[in-house]
Deep mutational scan, measured.
Amino acid sequence: MSIQHFRVALIPFFAAFCLPVFAHPETLVKVKDAEDQLGARVGYIELDLNSGKILESFRPEERFPMMSTFKVLLCGAVLSRVDAGQEQLGRRIHYSQNDLVEYSPVTEKHLTDGMTVRELCSAAITMSDNTAANLLLTTIGGPKELTAFLHNMGDHVTRLDRWEPELNEAIPNDERDTTMPAAMATTLRKLLTGELLTLASRQQLIDWMEADKVAGPLLRSALPAGWFIADKSGAGERGSRGIIAALGPDGKPSRIVVIYTTGSQATMDERNRQIAEIGASLIKHW
Rank of each mutant, 00 (worst) to 15 (best):
E35W: 02
I229L: 12
A200R: 07
E195I: 03
G194E: 11
G236P: 00
D177K: 00
M67D: 13
A170I: 02
S96M: 14
T198Q: 06
N130W: 01
I171L: 15
I283G: 03
T186F: 13
T131H: 10
L150P: 01
L160G: 08
A276C: 09
A133N: 02
M209Q: 10
I244G: 07
M153E: 03
N272W: 03
Q37T: 04
K32G: 15
T69Y: 00
N168E: 10
L74W: 00
R41F: 04
G90M: 14
T179M: 01
A34D: 07
P60K: 09
N98D: 13
T139S: 09
I275Q: 01
E46K: 15
C121M: 04
A132T: 15
E108A: 14
R220D: 12
V157Q: 10
R63T: 14
L146H: 07
K32M: 15
N168S: 12
L192V: 04
A123R: 02
I206L: 13
L47P: 00
V101I: 11
G141T: 11
I278Y: 01
K190S: 08
V82E: 11
V214Y: 06
V214S: 04
S281N: 05
M153A: 02
E102M: 03
D129A: 00
S122I: 13
S57Q: 03
P217K: 15
E166C: 14
L55G: 11
N50H: 06
V214T: 08
A230D: 00
L74D: 01
V101R: 03
V117C: 09
G216P: 07
R118K: 04
S264P: 04
P253E: 02
E169K: 06
E61Y: 07
T69M: 14
K213Q: 10
T138S: 07
L191S: 04
D161I: 02
L188K: 01
W163H: 12
L79G: 09
M67Q: 11
V78Y: 08
K32C: 14
M67C: 05
N98H: 07
T27Q: 11
H110L: 12
A235V: 13
V29Q: 10
L79C: 11
D33N: 02
I54H: 15
S240M: 14
E87V: 07
W227I: 02
E108Y: 07
E164A: 00
A235M: 12
L47D: 02
R118V: 07
L192S: 08
L135K: 08
H24V: 07
M66H: 08
S221L: 03
D177E: 02
K144L: 04
F70T: 08
V214G: 08
L49Q: 12
L74P: 01
V258H: 00
T27C: 12
V42M: 14
Q274W: 09
S80A: 12
I256S: 12
I244Q: 01
Q88W: 13
A170Y: 02
K32W: 15
T261A: 11
I45T: 06
I125N: 02
T261E: 03
T186S: 09
F58M: 14
M66V: 11
T147D: 06
N130E: 01
E210C: 09
I275S: 01
I206K: 13
A211D: 15
Q97R: 10
P172T: 10
G263Y: 10
G43A: 05
P65V: 13
N130C: 15
A170H: 03
L150V: 08
H94P: 04
D48S: 04
G85S: 06
I45K: 01
E61G: 05
I259W: 03
I283L: 02
D269L: 08
T186K: 15
G141W: 06
C121D: 00
I243M: 15
D113R: 04
G90T: 10
L100F: 02
L79V: 11
I259V: 05
I283V: 04
A77N: 04
E277A: 06
P249W: 08
P25K: 15
L197R: 15
